[in-house]
Nucleic acid binder design. Sequence first.
DNA 1: GCCGTTTTCGGCCCGACTGTTTTCAGTCG
Length: 572
Amino acid sequence: MNNLAIARVLAEIGDLLEIKNENPFKIRAYRNAAETIVHLGTQVAEMTGAERLAIPGVGKDLAGKLGELVETGTVRYHQELLAEFPPTILDLLHLQGVGPKTVSLFYSGLGIRTLDELRQAAGEGRLRALKGMGAKKEALILKALDERQRVAGRRLLAEAHDAAATLVAALRGHAPEASITAVGSLRRGCETCGDIDILAAGAPAAIMEAFTNYQLVERILARGSTKSSVLIWGGFQADLRVVPRESLGAALQYFTGSKAHNIALRDRAIQRGFKLNEYGLYRLDDESLVAGDSEEAIYAALGLQWIPPELRENRGEIAAAEHGTLPRLIALGDLRGDLHMHTTETDGRADAATMASAARHAGREYIAITDHSKALAMANGLDETRALEHARRIRDLNGRIEGITILAGIECDIRADGSMDLADECLAALDIVIASVHGAFHQDEQTMTERILAAIANPHVDVIAHPTGRLILKREGYRVNTARIFAAAAAAGVALEINSQVDRLDLDDTLARAARDRGVKLIIDSDAHSPAALGNLRWGALTARRAWLEPGDVLNTLPVADFRAALRRNRR
DNA sequence: GCCGTTTTCGGCCCGACTGTTTTCAGTCG
């Protein structure tokens, strides 16, 4: 049972307890633990009882339940709760505007258990008979049911970024003197975003009208003087918050979050005799303002270094900021090389010279052309003869484009049995070899792990690309024992990739941090199949920042000569 | 249910908006 599955059970217990109207702090305890476990670098299943007890937010009771879950695959407490309610009731909880109290009311009052039953009851006007319900609420629920499919769920960071950039630009046109910024999960660089949060500080009241009248607005969910919410076409919810100019820092802090980071910060404020909200940091005794116009001042007043948004997840950043030990985070500009990209020789859209020029233009000093190997027949993958011929042409090209070094590489398939798709003599003749899994995804964990370990054991392999094979919001990664992969990669000097494709980001932030902590070096690559996609490197850099990585953790921050010397094939 | 340089008991983050209300509960972020 992996951490994701464990967290789901804990979160579902939280949902069920909420419908039962249980103690809210007990509910929070289950949700906190679930959130922490999702982002744990280690599998709970492989921990000892004492190690589980050391997880923040896990006490004696939850440690026991984790043990039960890992050993039996289920928890009695969870099953008992599920016996009290039909499991389909949890679907109702995910409707816009419907929370646990309402779900409980529907169930106890009308026996509603499913979305279909709810739709029917609302359509027949039966909901308004319930206490606190009226015709308007009924109509809202019907709308929420219709929008469920389209709006449900989260979207890729890159999509959210594009939608937000357009919206922010439009708002700035209406209030050029105001400070207008995208905040929330977007500013933290989360791999997916549930909505778009925008903050306007020092903007005229009319900005709210500009927002709700924005041409792409499909429906207005809420409209007030300081806060409005809309649905925009394409399925995003967008929220705008307006605060006075002097509250810019407090509001940036407050709306950037995350929830867990904010709760910890406000708790810290209380302990020090302050109150923190979106308008400022105030003394509890006389309500006087301590800080508010800048984030730096607020963190400083709480005895902390300013914390980069990407770290604000309550994963140790507050303690580090207190001790002045925050990392010097890597930035996109630190990346001198991009070692994974494709050309028209296989499934890319441009030739090597075009890719090299574009990479140079994007600020890179060196690249590697790494087309596919023959196992990917669909992509016109290279056999040994073509791979060596392609390499010869790339080396001819090297030196002809000012300011960029071009290495001849390959993205070689790791076959189902763990052998490499190309002969060792071919791999040995190249400048860099990236190895990756592109087929037989459904092997069991043992087989998949041995398969990748076999690739790491091949002395010609320098990098493992997209090590888990996940596609965000589409496909979970293959089952693999990452702890063993990290140990082997660290020992062999094989680098692991953070693949920057918008729907890969693989390794993710949690695993990249865990890998670094186990002594693995990382490489951040675009895996571009076109010149434009070279720009995806920014998402990989963002992921690395969320993983707490410093430039020294990432090989392609090195100048080209040092980079080559650091590759496994050239190390002694 | 968790947690402790004030605490092993008594706390646990904060505010805006909506709908159905005669002062507030529920939802959301």
